[in-house]
């Protein structure tokens, strides 16, 4: 709204800068792609791009979908990794004692849902700040995992004894395309319908922009907010199950690595939108950009240490270019 005033003062200049700013993510994307294509010969091969998508992109993208929803609602979910870990724990725990595959999946998803339900009741019920509520959930789930895994022992599955569906979810292909890509695509479509095409999505954005006004407009603020955190936990559960079928193990605290990454991706994605709102497409592009940078630097031969520096600088650069708009929301 502040921009409406400033743009009235110098419309022409504003429009030019606006155009550049709006496309900073796309420009950065093209630049990174081109630079890596030149610098790392193996980068632009089909096999490598598929491996980027499978190894780096899918899980982070799924978790980021939930985070997009939460950030759109003006909150934050620090317990995404916990939900994924708890789902992985329940899923692998049941698979390892030869329970039916479907039961294990349902148990995994309900494990994640329980994390979401705790978040929802704390945030929408008792009205604790999302930052504090999800941080506490994160700490509690750390303890739960330590107690359940005897202090952080991974649970490995023995290959050969696993159900067929397990391999299909992990390595399976349909028409030459890996299953996990289908899952990401379907979830992304569902989430963009929820967020951008449904009434619920408009309530979510209203909640994020002006909670007080949303309340006065008759939006059911509590149930909207509760549903947001439950949906976020649910997709994290899906990510947790996919993570465990990929590595055939439950590794405690492995989900936390995604936390800051996904927050960064969602906000990089907001630079795509003219008002700096989170969007599903922007988030996916953000995750893709970060995973491509990781993969490309690895191919160039930079080690993990420099990758972190480069990722930080990249986030900085993109946000700096679009900074004037990202602040408008405040």
């Amino acid at each position: 709204m502040a921009s409406a005033i400033t743009s009235a003062h110098d419309p022409a200049r504003r429009r030019v800068t606006r155009w550049i700013l709006r496309n900073s993510l796309l420009a950065g994307f093209v630049l990174v792609f081109a630079a890596l294509g030149v610098a790392a010969p193996g980068f632009l091969t089909w096999n490598n791009l598929v491996s980027v998508i499978l190894n780096e992109f899918t899980l982070a993208a799924i978790i980021s979908l939930g985070m997009t929803l939460v950030i759109s609602a003006g909150g934050i979910d620090l317990s995404v990794g916990s939900a994924a870990d708890i789902a992985s724990l329940a899923f692998i725990g049941l698979v390892s004692v030869h329970q039916p595959f479907r039961l294990a999946v349902i148990a995994g998803l309900s494990g994640a849902l329980s994390v979401g339900a705790v978040n929802a009741s704390l945030i929408a019920g008792i009205r604790i700040s999302p930052l504090l509520a999800t941080l506490s959930t994160l700490f509690i789930s750390t303890s739960v995992q330590q107690l359940a895994s005897n202090g952080g022992q991974p649970i490995y599955l023995i290959s050969g004894t696993l159900p067929e569906a397990f391999y299909f979810l992990g390595r399976g292909q349909l028409f030459g395309v890996p299953m996990q890509i289908y899952i990401v695509t379907v979830l992304a479509i569902i989430f963009s319908i929820i967020l951008h095409k449904s009434n619920f999505g408009r309530y979510v954005f209203a909640l994020g922009a002006q909670p007080g006004v949303a309340w006065y407009s008759g939006i059911r603020v509590s149930s909207t907010s509760a549903l947001v955190y439950i949906l976020s936990a649910l997709v994290c559960g899906v990510a947790g199950i996919l993570l465990s079928v990929t590595v055939k193990a439950y590794v405690p605290q492995s989900g936390n690595a995604y936390l800051l990454w996904t927050i960064g991706a969602v906000f990089i994605g907001t630079t795509l939108h003219s008002e700096g709102r989170p969007s599903v497409a922007g988030t996916l592009l953000g995750v893709l950009l970060l995973s491509i940078v990781r993969n490309g630097l690895l191919l160039i031969g930079w080690n993990f240490y420099w990758q972190q520096v480069a990722t930080g600088l990249l986030i900085f650069a993109i946000l700096a270019f679009s900074g004037s708009r990202s602040r408008e929301a405040s």
Binding site: G264, F267, Q308, G312, I315, L319, S326
Partner: peptide
């Protein structure tokens, strides 16, 4: 976000 980036760096 700003401190997230500096944290990584």
């Amino acid at each position: 976000l700003a401190t997230l980036a500096t944290m990584n760096i």
